[in-house]
Structure formats: structure tokens, C-alpha cells
Design a protein around this nucleic acid. Structure first.
Lengths: 210, 210
DNA sequence: TATAATTGACTGACGCATTAGTCAATGAAA
DNA sequence: TTTCATTGACTAATGCGTCAGTCAATTATA
């Protein structure tokens, strides 16, 4: 049992938009934009539809606000990556490990990916922001790391324009979990997966005597 | 101008379901299941809503029929793969090349992937069939090839349960095209992409002196 | 402290638009 | 003339968005 501290009206009012956004996330993820009823969002919070419209003008505005609320951009992750030291391979491993924690393993980011794929056509701004805040910074960072590794002779020369290939296992894991979730029998072992991923990646990427 | 051959009533009637399924594909892809209006599907064919309901009982049945119509299973591809000869690497290259042609490059398969991601929750059968007809056969084939290559000493030992990693660039390309399509500036060069993909894959997967 | 006045967050019934699904009427092909 | 694919007007239901009214929390007054 959660301690139900009695809230003042001001406190409750300040909390409402966040409660509504959380509920909206669940419903929009479950039913998509068109399939979601505003009343179901309200029910989830324990208020009526009218209350939702006190805080958000329209269903579309609510959807966009929800997306914004759950879009924690990756800038901090890139900042962490900038502070790393070690070989290019070490730093690439670290940043890809961070990505793995932040994208397929984090439910909000994972489901956000679903909404980007399913609702992107109807909300072009969503796609643009998602690209600018999530995809572009990561890809730029990885491109830079590859270029650096190639320049120093640590990596074999690889065309940078295909760095999608390097992050592919992360996006693939995200999408497979979105589709099959717990349907596919074996629950993936995180550590073993990452080990195999990096093994495959680096034994192709690392310069070796031949 | 397409030659408008005059059709008999019987010919036209035989054609109608297919015309409706094609139109349904376009609309469901554009708007999703809940967002699509049956009347828009009819308009696309040049008939009225009533005609659609002559051929399909409900909107849901129409959706499912459309998915079936556009789900060309990969069995033939697996059959081709079985007839291949050469090293395990050669055969793996061939089958992955076929997958690349069939999944991200083929619009129907690509958009089907979108629908599986966005509507899968509402249509669990869709997920099951998609897994059984598309995912499982390919993964099984690739697992078998890896095991064979490992057994013969051609490949380094790799845990088979992570063969998703091997196909990851294909699913990633599919999803990135679904999200960004022609938004991202550089149009990807197919040949160069595949070359880089296989280079990275095999220089990790192939057994090497070390 | 007790009571009255005020506020404002929330309600819930309703208007209006949309759309799935029906079916008697139609008219063109056979 | 008969057949039957197609129509289009219809209904029933759904769901977005509105707003006059309610009542509990808060503040002012005695």
C-alpha cells in the first residue's frame, strides 16, 4: 500500500497533467492514436473526460504533449560518451552499451519507437524531432568514433555512411521485443547478447594482422 | 494510358476482391486499422461502400484478408536456399541477399512490417502467423548455416541463439526506411551497403588465424 | 474558533460529426 | 425479360469536444 498523503488542491492540480500524460502513454501505446478514446485515458486517472479537456485542448495536442513528456533526448548520453577515455573500441563499446540500456531495455523508449513507426505518417513533426534528438546525435557520435579509429589505424577502413550497420542489433532487438515481446520462447540474456554482439562487431571492425 | 479492355460482368466480379484488397492495403498502410474509413477504400476502387460489404463481412475481416493477400511467405526463399551450394559463407551471403531484396526493398513486405508493429497488439493471430511464416523459417535456416559453418571449422564458434544479430542490418534498414523514407538526405546505395554489411559480418564470423 | 462567502477543479449530460454496417431499389449485362 | 452487381440513403453507435452547474476546499468575517 502506498501512503495516500492527503494533497491540497494546489498540489493535486499540479499533479493532474502528469497523471493524464502517464495514462495517455498507456492508452496510446495500447490502441494507437485513432484507436484511443479520451474517456479511457480519463478513466485510467480516475477523472472524467471533461477534466482532460481542462488541461489539454484536443486529443492531438494531448498526444503531442505525451510524446514530448516521454522523449528524454539522448544529449546526456552523448555528453557521457564525450567524457569517456580509452581506445576507440572501448569507447564504442561503452556508448553502444548505453544505447542498449536506453533503447530496447527501457520500456518508454521502446514504446516510443513503436509510436514513431505507427503514427509518424500522421505527425511529421514527431519524425523530425525524433531524428534530430535521438537518431542524429548517436549516429554522429558513432561516425566520429569510427573515423577516429580508422585514422589511428585501430579499425579497418569502413564507409562511415553505413554506420547504421553498427547499431543495427540494438534497433533490431527493440523491434523484435515490440512485435513478439514475451511470445518468443527464450528470454534473451542481456550479458551474453552484448558479448556476442561486440565480438561479432569488433572482430570485423578491428584491424588485424592478416 | 493503360488499355481499358472491356470486361464481362463475370470477369469484373472476379476482379473486384483483388481491387478492394489492393486499395485496402494502401489505406490501412496510410492510416492504420482504426484510422481507415471503409468508404475511402471503396472510393479508391471507384465503387461505393456497399460493394465492399458484398465481398467482405466486416472491416476486421477485410483487414485480415488484406494481410493474408500480401503475406507471401518466405518458404520459396528457404527452398532456394536449400538448393544453394558452395561454402557456408557463400550460401549465407546468398540467403541474406535474398532477404534484403524481399524485406526492405519490397514495398509490400516493408509496409507489412509496419502493420505488424502497429496493429499486432489488436490482431494476435497476425503476429503468430508472421512469426511462423516469416521469422522462424529464416532464423532456422540461418541457424543451420551457422552451425554447419562452425562444425566444419569455417566459422568461429558463435552462440546460435543470437542469430538475430546476423540479420539485424536487414530489419534495421526496413525500419529506418519506414520511419524516414526519403527524409534522410542520402539515398542508400544498395550494392555498397551489402558489401559493407557482409564485410563486417564475415570478418567477424569467419575463422581466422590469430 | 465557528460560520459565511468565495473560488475553481471537476462533472456529466449533450450537441454534433463521423462512420460501420444494412438493404430495398436500380439499371446494365446476359 | 431476367439476373444480379451495384448503389446510396438509411440506422445505430461511437466518440470528440463543450459548458452550465456542483460541491469541496479555501479564505474572509464575526
Amino acid at each position: 500500500m502506498v501512503a495516500q498523503k492527503k494533497l491540497t488542491r494546489a498540489e493535486q492540480k499540479a499533479l493532474r497533467p502528469i497523471q493524464i500524460l502517464d495514462a495517455a502513454f498507456e492508452e496510446f501505446v495500447k490502441c494507437g492514436f485513432a484507436g484511443t478514446r479520451v474517456e479511457d485515458i480519463a478513466d485510467r486517472v480516475g477523472v472524467t473526460k471533461g477534466t482532460v479537456y481542462v488541461y489539454f485542448e484536443t486529443k492531438e495536442k494531448l498526444f503531442e504533449a505525451m510524446i514530448n513528456h516521454f522523449s528524454v533526448p539522448f544529449q546526456e548520453m552523448v555528453a557521457i560518451a564525450d567524457r569517456l577515455s580509452g581506445s576507440a573500441a572501448d569507447r564504442l563499446t561503452s556508448i553502444l552499451g548505453l544505447c542498449y540500456e536506453q533503447i530496447p531495455e527501457d520500456r518508454a523508449t521502446r514504446e516510443l519507437t513503436r509510436l514513431v513507426i505507427s503514427e509518424g505518417q500522421r505527425f511529421p513533426d514527431l519524425i523530425d524531432r525524433h531524428h534530430d534528438q535521438f537518431i542524429a546525435p548517436i549516429i554522429a557520435k558513432i561516425d566520429a568514433l569510427i573515423l577516429e579509429g580508422v585514422a589511428s589505424g585501430e579499425f579497418r577502413p569502413i564507409p562511415v555512411e553505413f554506420s547504421d550497420i553498427v547499431v543495427a542489433p540494438i534497433l533490431t532487438t527493440t523491434v523484435l521485443r515490440l512485435i513478439f515481446d514475451d511470445r518468443r520462447v527464450p528470454t534473451p540474456n542481456k550479458e551474453a547478447f552484448l558479448r556476442t554482439y561486440f565480438d561479432l562487431l569488433f572482430n570485423g571492425l578491428l584491424a588485424k594482422p592478416h
